[in-house]
Amino acid sequence: MKSFFVSTILVLTFCVGTFAQTNETSPCPTISVTGPEEITKPDEPMTFTAEVSKEAKKFKTEYKWTVTNGEIIEGQGTKVIKVLWKDMFGKSLLAEFEVIGLPKNCVSVASETAATVCPPSSKLVDEFSGPISQIDKARLDNLFVEIQNDPSAVAYIFERFERKTSQNVIERKIQKITDYLIKEKRIEKDRFVISTAISDENLTQYFIVPPGASPPEIEDNN
């Protein structure tokens, strides 16, 4: 009887030990994502990096990135990606990293948000009145410097003429400006835009418009 009792205890102990081993759950890994520390400018790629702790090695996993307001250009399926944001000025870019293959009770997603620059705007760099039959080369030289300082920007030249101004006078002045910028300053034709309008006074305005900015509009009071 005593021998039977001891055998029963051994069997129960073995069963309990086996049950505990088969129901032991592996700890879940920790997941985190870091992004760029500084605000990103247009056409500059952002880098996002994911960190997954060593517990994930116990599972057969895959990595997947999802990006909002941007485009992944490198690294999908790895822990590091490069992203270009889609000119969403003023909007944040969200990068989400998912570890596929973890147990259902584990957190499998981490994300990070990166800030982008505010939308650019056109800049008025000069405004003056002068003889309608002449061009101010010194001021055009200053405009040339502005264009050179920002190779991706476009200059907008607004010429407003009094109502009594003839069309021939207007056309001659526009031609003088065009010839001076192209022939003497060697500026490409697509780097500047000249617009005219009829107004109460003769007035010239120079604007610099960076990429992504809305160009200014000239009002015609004719």
Rank of each mutant, 00 (worst) to 15 (best):
N168G: 02
G130H: 05
G77N: 02
E159C: 09
F89E: 03
I187F: 08
M1F: 10
E217W: 08
K41Y: 15
S129R: 02
S121K: 00
D179K: 15
V67K: 01
T116C: 10
V67P: 01
E112D: 13
G130E: 04
V169R: 09
K189M: 08
I100T: 04
V145D: 15
V209Y: 04
A153P: 15
S92W: 03
G35Y: 11
A95Q: 05
K2N: 15
D220S: 00
E162S: 13
R163D: 07
S26L: 11
F97G: 02
I177C: 12
L93T: 05
V16D: 03
V16M: 00
K60V: 15
A56Y: 08
F19S: 11
K137S: 01
G90W: 03
I170T: 03
A213P: 00
F89W: 11
V125E: 12
L102D: 06
W85I: 01
A56K: 06
D136L: 00
R163H: 11
M88P: 13
I182Y: 12
S129E: 01
T18G: 07
K79S: 08
I72V: 03
I170F: 05
F97H: 08
I157R: 06
S152H: 10
L181C: 12
A115S: 15
P27I: 04
L94M: 15
E37Y: 15
K64G: 00
I147S: 08
K183I: 05
F97L: 13
T22M: 14
T116Y: 15
E44C: 03
S133W: 09
S195A: 15
I208S: 03
S152L: 06
T165I: 12
K137M: 02
S7D: 12
F48S: 04
E217S: 13
P131K: 00
V109L: 13
P27V: 04
N69W: 07
F89Q: 07
P103Y: 12
K79Q: 11
A197T: 00
K86R: 10
D87V: 02
K2I: 14
R191C: 13
V209R: 00
E44W: 06
K91A: 10
I174L: 09
S195P: 14
E201R: 05
S92D: 06
E37S: 14
V67C: 01
L93P: 09
K86A: 03
C15F: 13
P210Y: 00
G90M: 06
F5W: 12
S166A: 14
E217Y: 12
K86Q: 10
G70D: 04
K58T: 05
M88K: 15
E146T: 12
E74C: 02
E184R: 07
V154G: 05
A115R: 14
N69I: 04
R139F: 09
Q76F: 07
L84E: 08
K104H: 14
F192R: 05
Y156E: 05
L140N: 01
S53Y: 06
M1K: 14
F48D: 02
I81C: 00
F59M: 05
K2S: 14
D43H: 11
K173V: 09
E98Y: 14
N149P: 11
Q76R: 08
Q167W: 00
F97N: 07
I187L: 07
N221A: 03
F4I: 12
N142Y: 12
C118H: 11
T30R: 13
